[in-house]
Simulated scan of single mutants.
Amino acid sequence: MQRTLYILLRNPMSMLGLLLVFIVVFSAIFADFIAPFPAHRGAVVDFANFNRAPEWPYIFGTDLVGRDIFTRIIYAFRISLMLGAVVLVIAVPIGVTIGLLAGYLGGWTEYVLMRLTDVFLSIPPLVLAMSIMGVLQPTLTNGMLAVTAMWWPWYTRLVYNITRSEKEEGYVLAAEVIGASRLHVMFREILPNCVPSILTKMTLDLGFVILIASSLSFLGLGVQPPTPDLGSMVAEGATYLPDSWWLTVFPGLAILVAVFGFNLVGDALRELLGADQ
Rank of each mutant, 00 (worst) to 15 (best):
E271N: 10
V25M: 13
Y6M: 00
F37A: 12
L88M: 15
V257N: 11
I190E: 00
A129D: 04
P192T: 08
A129H: 13
V259I: 11
L216H: 07
R115D: 08
F187H: 10
K167D: 01
V119T: 11
W56G: 11
P226N: 05
L8H: 07
L121I: 05
I190N: 05
I94T: 05
F47M: 12
L219P: 00
F60L: 13
A180W: 04
P153H: 04
V96T: 07
V96H: 07
L216Y: 14
L272A: 10
L204D: 07
A43N: 14
G66C: 09
A35G: 06
F60E: 01
E55T: 13
L173A: 01
M13L: 12
L136N: 04
F26T: 08
T239F: 13
P57V: 10
P12C: 06
P153Q: 00
Y111V: 05
A275K: 10
A238C: 04
F218W: 10
L19S: 11
M82W: 12
S14I: 11
I29K: 08
C194Q: 11
F262Y: 15
A235D: 10
I34R: 07
L199N: 03
V21A: 09
W246I: 06
R10S: 12
V86E: 12
N193E: 09
N51M: 09
R157I: 00
L158S: 02
L116V: 13
V195M: 04
V259F: 10
L16P: 03
I210F: 02
M144W: 09
S14V: 11
A43K: 14
G95P: 13
N161R: 05
G107F: 14
V185A: 04
L247T: 04
A35R: 09
N193H: 15
P153N: 03
N161K: 03
I198F: 14
L221E: 00
P153Y: 09
T62C: 08
A43H: 10
G66E: 01
L199D: 06
L81W: 03
I255Q: 14
L199E: 08
G252C: 02
L19I: 13
E236A: 13
A53D: 08
W151D: 09
A268P: 10
R41L: 02
I198E: 01
D276M: 09
E110W: 08
M150H: 00
P153G: 05
Y171C: 05
M82Y: 11
A175K: 06
L101H: 13
N193V: 02
M130T: 06
I74N: 12
G220N: 07
G134L: 01
F250W: 15
S215W: 06
L64S: 13
G143F: 11
F250H: 07
I162G: 00
A275I: 03
D32Y: 01
A31H: 14
N49V: 08
T4K: 15
L199W: 15
V45F: 12
A238R: 15
G84Q: 11
S197Q: 10
G252W: 12
V249E: 02
F208V: 02
A275P: 01
S232F: 00
E189V: 02
F33M: 12
G261Y: 09
V257W: 14
M15A: 04
I132V: 01
S122N: 06
P125E: 15
F22T: 06
W154L: 02
V87C: 00
S122D: 05
L241Q: 12
A31G: 06
M82Q: 14
G252R: 09
N193T: 08
I132G: 04
L269F: 08
L16R: 05
L221C: 10
